[in-house]
Amino acid sequence: MGYRAETLFRLLKAAAPTMLGVLGVLILAAPIRLFEGFAPTPILPLVIVFFWSVYGPDYLPPLSVFVIGLLQDLLTGGPLGLWPAVYLVTQYIVMSQRAYFLGREQKVVWLGFALASIGAGLILWLVMSLLSGALLPVRHLMSQLAVTVLIYPLFGVAFGELHRRVLVEA
């Protein structure tokens, strides 16, 4: 491999989690109506933020998280700054507990993700309730978070393979 191609590959690897986050936002904005709208689309960027905050914070710096969140705000039409705040606070909390998660069983990490999602959902609900001046119904939020937590193992394994085989090793 020439020097140029190698640099390009290195750059691609470094930016892979960020690009995955952007893809997650696009999937969130696409009209995917699982089971005729019965199951909400999972919040994939949250999985990505959580995963790389635990296993490779260098690959997903706060600025990337900020950009991913801002893009989500712009595409879903919500108040600007909402999702960056949710993702960045999640990243902050997860990174402070990083030492605990490293080397643990995936079951434990999954539980950690569930807790992180509940935290993220709480922030989201509090901010939106504050902005709209009324306590908002939580049912849709809870089902969306439940779907996100349920799919975590699948993406956890996929991202783990990607991180181990491509990003760190190769």
Binding site: K13, A14, A15, G56, L63, L102, L167, V168
Partner: peptide
Amino acid sequence: YLGQDRREGLG
């Protein structure tokens, strides 16, 4: 094997 601190990412 995950979580090795290798400075290869964006940050």
